[in-house]
Design a protein around this nucleic acid. Structure first.
Lengths: 100, 100
DNA sequence: GGTTATGTTCGACGATGATCGAACATTCAA
DNA sequence: TTGAATGTTCGATCATCGTCGAACATAACC
């Protein structure tokens, strides 16, 4: 048997998760990421109406919140959605975002 | 049969729900409300570190987001948590808040 | 080596929202 | 009728955060 008891998820952690998911640009990132294979999209390839520096800001937020991880591939920074991991910590929240 | 197909829940509605739930004072209101019987707590009876006018502001947010309804009883304004209604629109979100 | 592409960092700006106190309205109680 | 209790409204203030451009760093490509 695995130790899959519900993690208490302190309110501070919940605050971070809600903040991360509460921005429309970040939700768009999450949706585009969910629609593609892991590690196939670099930061600059997202279809978003913001500048490069703003993009960097949002990606940092998402990484800090545990929603995605990044990996450098030469020039580019590739992304992977931490779907199961996040869903385990905050059940249903990511689904709410991804169901449009 | 009842027409209980999943409402698409536009992103604007999701934005409103996340905003409403994204404030710690409002989450405290929701938790205190969930811990009591419906219509038993007036606005001024909540244990919160904010002023009266701030309280009014937060209650308006929660009503607008469809999280609670209010009813005047003489002097006081009583509250009821719209648990099932909100959970039907945004499954799991309120549980996330109420599970501390 | 020089140029282009991809990201980050930094400082600044602006909008939004949480907060408060004072004034007001309403209801209840003495 | 007077006073206390409960909420709302209205401005004002303050902090946070999303946003940008400019400068910088690094890697790929010719």
């Amino acid at each position: 048997m695995s130790t899959d008891f519900r993690t208490p998820a302190t309110d501070a952690a919940l605050q971070g998760a809600l903040d991360a998911v509460g921005d429309p640009v970040r939700r768009s990132i999450l949706r585009q990421l969910a629609a593609a294979e892991p590690w196939t999209i670099a930061c600059g390839q997202f279809d978003l109406p913001v500048s490069k520096s703003t993009l960097t800001h949002h990606f940092r937020s998402l990484v800090d919140a545990g929603l995605l991880e990044q990996r450098d591939e030469g020039n580019r920074r590739m992304n992977r959605l931490l779907r199961d991991e996040f869903d385990r910590r905050f059940p249903g929240l990511l689904d709410l975002v991804l169901d449009q």
